[in-house]
Amino acid sequence: MATLLDIQGLTISFPNATPVKDLSFQVAEAETLAIVGESGSGKSLTALALMRLLPKTADITDGSIRFAGEDLVNIPEPAMRERRGRDIAMIFQEPMTSLNPVLTIGRQIVEVLRLHRGLTRAQARREARDLLDLVRIPDPDRCLDDYPHRLSGGMRQRVMIAIAVACRPKLLIADEPTTALDVTIQAQVLELLDRLRRELSLALLLITHDLGVVGQWADRVVVMYAGRKVEEAPPEPLFNDPLHPYTQGLLAASPRLHDDLHYRDSRLSEIPGSISSAVKEKGCPFVPRCPQRRDVCRTVFPDTTMAGLGRSVACHAVTPTIATGPSLHDAAVRL
């Protein structure tokens, strides 16, 4: 499968902090890549950087983002605006506040259709109706003229998804799309996303801290810690044989991982310690919480090394034994 998105060495800085450091990963066409990591690990900032919608004070200070062969870091803002909502779309964690409360649902869908697809008002309205149908909203005709406050959270998230896929994007970024929803609704929304991924053959970048979601829906997983990628693997090997001490801690902290029902309740933050103790530069950020730490960990950040097919890990405890394969960059090309 061809690479759609190729991120190399992405670094995001605020004037006084660097919450994402030297992050590299790839997304292939029509696959689902999950990014997991506890609160504050830089997942949302990474997603916003892809959209070039970082907060004003934040900046991409290093690295490249190649999307369909084009460098998104350096294209001018008007060109980026054309990509947003058309080639790359994004949905957010808070369906309750992500829709404009004073505009009808129909108008908010029609807006993006007219902007990027140049449809007339009537065409756009018909298309909006079909989109609501596509995301399985009952009685789409009535919903068009309804206001967001009349819909439940799950329904609103469906509307957000309808807006996101309105222009058939190649990449859909979903930043914790189900965190704010009821458990039963969560599954439905994820099923919907997966169905759309297949039907519209779009790539899905799924950001979550729910390991159950990862196990069920992801083709590959990137584990982030304190702004860095610490491990990458397909879900099966990751769950069966986690290599990085942080990933091991995660899995240990969610006891009945293979019981589907308990997947969704397992939160990453159950590992002792906190990410804020890891802000110091230099060395591995996981040192304060790592049971396997050694002296070198305090001074040198471990290189990312291959650890089997499609697997990589950044840890001094793993490196000496397995780090014999080619570098990750070569592996990514073969992927």
Binding site: M51, R83, G85, L99, N100, E111
Partner: peptide, 26 residues
């Protein structure tokens, strides 16, 4: 600073369209 403004930006709307279409009325 509201979420729906971020949504509008993610749709690819221009700052002008965001101000007059989404922010001002609220």
């Amino acid at each position: 600073t509201q979420d729906y403004v971020r949504t509008a930006a993610a749709k690819g709307l221009s700052p002008f369209a965001i101000t007059f279409g989404h922010v001002l009325r609220n």
